[in-house]
Design a protein around this nucleic acid. Sequence first.
DNA 1: ATGAAAGCGCTAACAT
DNA 2: ATGTTAGCGCTTTCAT
Lengths: 340, 340
Amino acid sequence: MVEVSEQRGPRKRATMLDVAAAAGVGLRTVSRVVNADPTVGSHLVSRVQAAIADLDYVPDERAQQLRRGRSGTIGAAVRNLADAHPVLDAVDRAARAEQLALLAVSTDDDEDREREAVLAMCRRRVDGLVIEPIGLRHDYLAAEIDAGMPVVAVDRPAAGIAVDAVISDNASGIGMAYRQLAVHGHHRIGYLGDDERIFTGRERAAAFRACVAAGGGPLDGMVHPGPLSAARITAVLDGLRRAGATALITGNAETTIEVLRQLGPDAGRLAMIGFDDFPLADILRPALTVVAQDSRQIGAVAIDLLVKRTADPARPVQTVTVPTELIPRGSGEIRPEEVG
Amino acid sequence: MVEVSEQRGPRKRATMLDVAAAAGVGLRTVSRVVNADPTVGSHLVSRVQAAIADLDYVPDERAQQLRRGRSGTIGAAVRNLADAHPVLDAVDRAARAEQLALLAVSTDDDEDREREAVLAMCRRRVDGLVIEPIGLRHDYLAAEIDAGMPVVAVDRPAAGIAVDAVISDNASGIGMAYRQLAVHGHHRIGYLGDDERIFTGRERAAAFRACVAAGGGPLDGMVHPGPLSAARITAVLDGLRRAGATALITGNAETTIEVLRQLGPDAGRLAMIGFDDFPLADILRPALTVVAQDSRQIGAVAIDLLVKRTADPARPVQTVTVPTELIPRGSGEIRPEEVG
DNA sequence: ATGAAAGCGCTAACAT
DNA sequence: ATGTTAGCGCTTTCAT
């Protein structure tokens, strides 16, 4: 009986050993060809490559990683795949420049999801971690860091652990927004942003208070940090109107958007500057003046810190602050007399 | 001399063997505990768990996968991490329900990036592939499919290979948009969309032509498929104005947004319906009427097809069409007499 | 109910 | 310049 070689169903996947056999060379030679080791005779190289093409051989990266001891991958846990795109994009580019693949997951702003996602990446033995921290405590990472995992926090510092961080200059951003409104004649300026239990919410609210104090404007009823909810925003907008506010600074993109949604056609009747730029902010009417973070630089610095820590695990922990930029588009340049 | 046990620098990572030694049990027992095998004595379970906690043991998933022969991961290659979010999100949810992790990469609408990204996933031995195809030929996947890799195309079919697909009902979507405009009194309706070399561009332009033919409206100078560029859109808008068009259907979100950008304050002077919904479409003025794809269902169906093919690799290849929905928000309900 | 040993596919010492 | 061999950390027959 002759064995039927062409079976139905999926063909078995070729391994490196199959390739070696087909090419009539040793396993090591195939490995060398796969890894572009120049010390292989060109004769054998082409024979091995032919066998690889013939068998549709695809190296198993898991085995490579396991044996090499490095994964060549860095993990990124960001709050939202969509919003974080500019930072993530920059991280991706920077990582690629360092010959590193990027494994990105969304934490959906959920503390448990974050921990779960980060630990999953640790099980995959990523060579480094970029985290946009959600929770208040990140002790769950202590063991990993202890085991030598390089970690960098972006957007906000990670509490409870000593890791490098890249954050935007929130105080300066709020300052620019406040001055822009003041320069355009506003005196009664409101602030509506994140809960102060959140790092950026805390920093931005504090910076705003400092600006008002320095500018001599009214503080009472003007500063509204708190959780993001449509109902709260409705109430705050109402209160601000009663208090005679002619201008508003919003502390994050979600808040900005919800405010615009509620303002509807009245959007032009209040001067407004949003912290964080977002797509389409320029096609709104009036176009939205924003304080933009330098996402590209944030991502690049994050990878840089990761690489440096990998090279020298003992180096002192560092927090890098990246400048923000005011982008005037119209909504922040409305004068009080145009408001009504 | 006594060995210094508390060294400087990263502690070596504990392996399963270390845990076994620390707990005074066999390797197999630790494996059983890690995998929640119920046949382990509760006495040993707690002893092993204590050792795991003590050593901060984290299983190496690559080794698990290698040995198990499955990765428990499905890969998704989408054009854009931001735009695809709803589909990706649905894919993610559906995958998790099937106990599968999701590995997502962006192809940035680039054919080479797509191939590179997909092959990278194959090297990681994902258990299935969800692809939003870019290129015209996908033969590079033939060998993988032959080796038993389940693949499903979303949004458009993959050419050159026989794989399952989930696509939106483009013709019906264009039909709804056209009728909505016609019902509101428009007779001179323009179309501006993707190049007809792109599947969706082809389908939507063809559907639009069929609508016009059926409705008896003018076709001449009204249908504009082609590459997305600001200059081309400027020219088309100008031509449409001269041709007396009172309404416009745009064939994809990028085009819609660029049109709105160029229209600026004149946005309300042209009835408009966009194919594809996007965030903030509802806070524009006028709010944008759109044909929305059912991303949630697309994602769910994609995973369903993947699971079914995994279970039965020989099942016939299938293309599922998912309905689209018209969401009237204002811009599509402007009457010709309001247009200037 | 538990352990010893083989091996997943690959790379890296070590021959030769 | 090329081949042999020993693991990387885990799961899994197979004994016990």
